[in-house]
């Protein structure tokens, strides 16, 4: 464990907790894409299958449960909680995300480190996470104004993988033969997808203007 990875995990945890808190307290999911939340639930479900078979540390298991629990409860709130579901923007959140799932699955079957069930699903979860934010970014461009919490959620979510890139650089130089091209490339693609969001987010913060 290094400071970059710890900061990345904390940033990631805060992003999901900010979103869960927003939805739970103001009972609204305006501006939030349930498709991105469903993709993230699939990402965690397929990445953390080894939670039962391999124990890394208390921290690791605890964080996996936090991410699994928060992503599935956010989907539950947005799909089945009456008050929250009413604020869901069905007309605007139209990204056909099942195509993302299918293409990532095919890609994982083609490009992976080891052809085992767990390893292919783990690779699939990396590919899917890289593109999971797309429905949310598309929804963002359609909805005029987004509230601060949703903006903070996306900012933290984009930031966490950027911190992970610093973690990979650190591990590459400190651990012999620590090389994981698939993880690095997907992590880079994922972070780059946030580039224009970061740009507008920074502008709105600098000019102290509403993000739009």
């Amino acid at each position: 464990m290094n400071i970059f990875r710890l900061a990345g995990d904390m940033t990631h945890m805060f992003s999901v907790l900010v979103l869960l808190l927003k939805i739970h307290t103001i009972k609204s999911c305006a501006g939030v894409s349930v498709k991105t939340q469903e993709l993230y639930a699939i990402v965690f479900a397929t990445r953390y299958l080894d939670i039962f078979t391999s124990f890394v540390s208390i921290y690791n298991t605890f964080m996996k449960l936090v991410f699994l629990g928060s992503s599935f409860s956010i989907v539950w709130y947005m799909r089945y909680h009456k008050a929250v579901h009413r604020t869901y923007d069905r007309e605007q959140d139209t990204f056909r995300h099942w195509f993302l799932v299918l293409s990532c699955l095919l890609l994982a079957l083609l490009i992976h480190e080891k052809f085992t069930f767990l390893e292919v699903l783990w690779t699939f979860s990396l590919y899917l996470e890289a593109v999971a934010i797309l429905p949310q970014l598309v929804l963002l461009q359609r909805t005029r104004n987004i509230d601060n919490l949703t903006g903070q959620y996306i900012f933290l979510l984009g930031g966490y993988r950027g911190l992970y890139i610093l973690n990979w650089i650190y591990r590459y130089f400190t651990e012999p033969h620590f090389v994981h091209w698939i993880t690095w490339i997907t992590g880079l693609v994922q972070t780059l997808l946030y580039a224009d969001f970061f740009y507008y987010y920074f502008l709105s913060w600098k000019n102290n203007k509403k993000l739009n």
């Binding site: 990875r5 995990d9 990445r47 391999s54 992970y164």
Partner: peptide, 10 residues
Amino acid sequence: IEHEFEHDEL
């Protein structure tokens, strides 16, 4: 045996 690449990251 080849070291089982354990995914120690989240």
